[in-house]
């Protein structure tokens, strides 16, 4: 039989060392860059940015790799930071246990919210996540232990494992860097795991995945819980670093901000949310002189991205790199 075989697109060019190891190289550059960055800019800014970057990566796991738009991710970020702050300040737990408390809280919240939301698709899914997040925002506003408008202030950084004083600038920076890189690698691993393959299949063609016998709701729920827990890890760490848990982190604009970061950086790219978080945060920092106008500028960037650069910063660069 005659066969006409076109050149497959998948194996277009022979992969060079650079191409084949692009992700590993980018990771090393990022890790080294972050390790030396405190010599050049404010460590507190960098630590905060790393927390937001991890938050955005966790959010991206859901939107970019499962195709689920959660519009209430501040719920996990914010509530984890409350619980971590409370655990450190009131219960007197060591920072690693406080962070663990916050992360576990976010995982449980993710289990509850996820179970309710994954029964619906698309916009309804987003609305349910938003509604639940708003409900929990009002709870945070009213509850005694969250401190209402004041938040939980003067959270002690404490001694890591009861040994290392985190008031030391190097120690706290090293901790945040470790948490961020660890969380980032975990997300990378999840995406490139057997579980990640199934997530990809579900995103590509859910009815077909079901017809192959996959209980797709279960996979989506696990992805949701992982995303919520990692968002919680970011929120808890931020509470220890900034020594503060406040309403800002649990309110809906925060849920919107993480969407913006992910979109600007590149949805569904592994490094995109990191770049997006740093860009947005740097912008807020540099433009703080213009006050509320920063929101208008953010809005313009958002619209520009959606209209012109759908793939985001990293997505555009990768596309150029490939072609």
């Amino acid at each position: 039989m005659e066969e006409r075989i076109a050149q497959p697109a998948a194996v277009a060019a022979p992969p060079t060392f650079l191409r084949a190891n692009a992700e590993a190289i980018a990771f090393v550059v990022m890790a080294v860059g972050l390790a030396v960055a405190p010599f050049f800019t404010y460590p507190l800014f960098l630590m905060q940015a790393m927390c937001f970057a991890l938050f955005a990566c966790a959010f991206n796991l859901l939107i970019g790799y499962v195709g689920l738009l959660s519009f209430g991710h501040a719920l996990y970020f914010g509530w984890a930071s409350y619980l971590a702050a409370h655990a450190a300040k009131v219960w007197g737990l060591t920072p690693e246990l406080a962070i663990l408390t916050g992360t576990a809280t976010a995982a449980i919240l993710g289990l509850v919210a996820g179970s309710l939301a994954i029964r619906r698709q698309g916009i309804y899914f987003a609305m349910i996540t938003l509604a639940l997040a708003q409900m929990m925002f009002f709870f945070a506003l009213q509850a005694e232990f969250t401190g209402g408008e004041d938040g939980i202030q003067a959270v002690p950084r404490g001694y890591l494992f009861g040994l290392i004083d985190l008031r030391n600038d190097v120690a706290i920076y090293a901790l945040v860097l470790f948490v961020f890189l660890g969380g980032f690698l975990l997300i990378y691993r999840i995406i490139h795991s057997p579980f990640g393959e199934v997530l990809k299949a579900i995103r590509e063609n859910e009815p077909r995945a079901i017809s192959l016998g996959y209980k797709t709701d279960r996979y989506k729920l696990i992805a949701f819980i992982l995303s919520a827990a990692l968002a919680g890890l970011a929120g808890s760490t931020k509470a220890i670093v900034m020594q503060l848990a406040s309403l800002t982190d649990v309110n809906w604009p925060m849920s919107g901000e993480v969407v913006l970061m992910t979109l600007v950086g590149g949805l569904g790219t592994i490094f995109g949310p990191v770049v997006g978080a740093f860009v947005i945060l740097a912008m807020q920092f540099k433009l703080s002189v213009v006050g509320e106008w920063v929101l208008v500028i953010q809005g313009v960037i958002f619209v520009t991205c959606v209209l012109l650069f759908r793939r985001g910063i990293v997505g555009e660069i990768t596309a150029r790199f490939k072609s």
Binding site: S193, P194, F195
Partner: peptide, 25 residues
């Protein structure tokens, strides 16, 4: 997904470890 990955998705379901998010693919 590639032809190989398409078929593997089915094999993977049958033989387990589809929930393993901590292992390399």
């Amino acid at each position: 997904m590639t032809v190989l990955e398409n078929v593997r998705i089915a094999l993977q379901r049958l033989r387990g470890n589809s929930m393993d998010f901590w292992r390399s693919r």
